[in-house]
Amino acid sequence: MSVISVIIPIYNASRYLPRCLDGILEQTFTKWQLLLVDDGSTDCSLDICNDYANKDNRIKVFHKENEGVSIARQYGLDKVCTPYFIFCDADDYVEPDYLEKLYDAITSNCADMVICRYKEEYKTRTVIPELPETDINGLIHNFLNDKVWGITWNKLYRIDITKQHNIQFIPGLQMWEDLSFTIDYLLQAHKIAFVQKPLYHYVMYNEGSITRHEDFKKKNDRIIAIRHIEQSMRDANVLKVFHESLVIDKYHIISVTYKGYGKQRRKYFLNAFPEIFDDQYFKKKHFIIYILIKTHSIRLLYFKYLYDTILKWLRKRIKALFIK
């Protein structure tokens, strides 16, 4: 009997898909079912999925029209009939004890979610981000402050929590659909656990990956996601707890104005969260930006961006010299 459902949304991933699927087949924990959601691929991804399904009856293949990653994730989630579930991206791969370590941690700690470290794999180097161990509120703060990613593929979830509280992915989002889902989930959870061993390989050199390309829509998705998160926190009566982190995140989103997009789109982003410009915490944290906004000197924001970029580069170079 299966205990964990692994959900893999797939779109034109034929180049990387066999390695990803082989990683699941090689798991030391064998009580899994694999839900492959082909989101209207135009390459041979669906054929690869069917070939693997013919070899192992734990693999289920679903083919649907292309509607984007958020709907594909939800499609797979709706098919889950096991106590636990996790997501995996089709161009990534996992360690053989990926499921075993996560399952042991969530059951031994009686947790509602367990999170593991991962490796960011670039063409010439590998980075293993830190994973600070906190309580649930601390983890949400870390998500909003970009200290920990809210991605779904290094987190094991319980299906009963999503069903009881009707936790779903926001349809149509290409970015931060995972962050909003994970925070919605954590607002209903009671305990989390951590695995410090890197169990997931996040492949950063796939140029076709959706997260490698930024555009107006994806940045706008972040506005939708953060508004959704804010409402969820309001419904859970915890908005005050996360107020400062939300302000930081909102400012992070509107800071896209530094990089251009033209006058109209700069204005659009600046109007996305008008409430932060009169917020006392924002005034204290970003006083220069506050003055520029209030004096209608939007065009000067780009020079502030250049200043911050140069300063960041100098600090990095100085740090590298001391390390040597």
Rank of each mutant, 00 (worst) to 15 (best):
273 F>L: 06
75 Y>F: 12
133 E>F: 05
17 L>K: 09
5 S>E: 11
220 N>T: 15
45 S>K: 06
24 I>Q: 09
128 I>D: 09
125 R>C: 08
117 R>K: 15
134 T>F: 07
35 L>W: 10
315 R>N: 08
290 Y>G: 01
58 R>K: 15
243 H>S: 13
55 K>P: 00
207 E>P: 00
257 T>E: 10
274 P>W: 10
6 V>T: 12
4 I>F: 11
273 F>H: 05
68 G>S: 07
318 I>V: 07
134 T>H: 06
1 M>I: 04
295 T>K: 06
68 G>F: 04
300 L>P: 00
182 T>L: 08
89 D>A: 06
30 T>H: 15
280 Q>D: 14
163 K>M: 03
255 S>W: 02
67 E>I: 12
137 N>H: 10
169 F>H: 14
72 A>D: 09
13 A>S: 15
304 K>P: 00
85 F>W: 12
104 D>W: 01
228 H>E: 09
197 K>G: 00
59 I>L: 09
151 I>L: 14
14 S>F: 01
201 H>D: 06
85 F>I: 06
63 H>N: 15
185 Y>D: 00
253 I>R: 05
64 K>D: 07
265 R>N: 10
130 E>Y: 11
213 H>Q: 14
180 S>H: 04
74 Q>W: 12
174 Q>D: 15
276 I>M: 13
126 T>I: 15
307 Y>R: 01
137 N>L: 01
29 F>N: 07
227 R>Y: 15
264 Q>F: 13
33 Q>F: 05
250 K>A: 04
111 A>P: 02
98 Y>P: 00
88 C>F: 12
249 D>M: 11
33 Q>G: 02
178 D>Q: 11
123 K>R: 04
282 F>A: 03
194 F>W: 10
74 Q>P: 08
151 I>M: 13
301 L>Y: 03
180 S>F: 02
124 T>Y: 14
300 L>M: 05
55 K>G: 02
248 I>K: 14
197 K>R: 11
30 T>M: 04
43 D>F: 03
138 G>E: 06
160 D>M: 02
35 L>H: 06
259 K>C: 10
191 K>Q: 08
266 R>M: 10
162 T>M: 02
199 L>Y: 12
110 C>I: 00
59 I>V: 09
274 P>K: 04
171 P>Q: 01
36 L>D: 05
265 R>I: 04
191 K>T: 01
46 L>V: 00
60 K>P: 02
193 A>G: 02
33 Q>W: 08
120 E>Y: 07
155 K>Q: 14
324 K>Y: 10
161 I>F: 13
315 R>Q: 14
183 I>W: 10
15 R>E: 15
131 L>T: 07
130 E>P: 05
94 V>T: 11
149 W>K: 11
259 K>F: 14
319 K>R: 15
252 H>Q: 10
27 Q>T: 12
95 E>W: 00
20 C>V: 03
215 D>T: 08
105 A>H: 03
181 F>Q: 07
12 N>K: 13
27 Q>I: 06
324 K>G: 07
38 D>V: 06
76 G>T: 00
14 S>Y: 07
109 N>W: 02
133 E>Y: 12
271 N>V: 03
317 R>T: 00
322 F>R: 12
122 Y>S: 06
28 T>M: 05
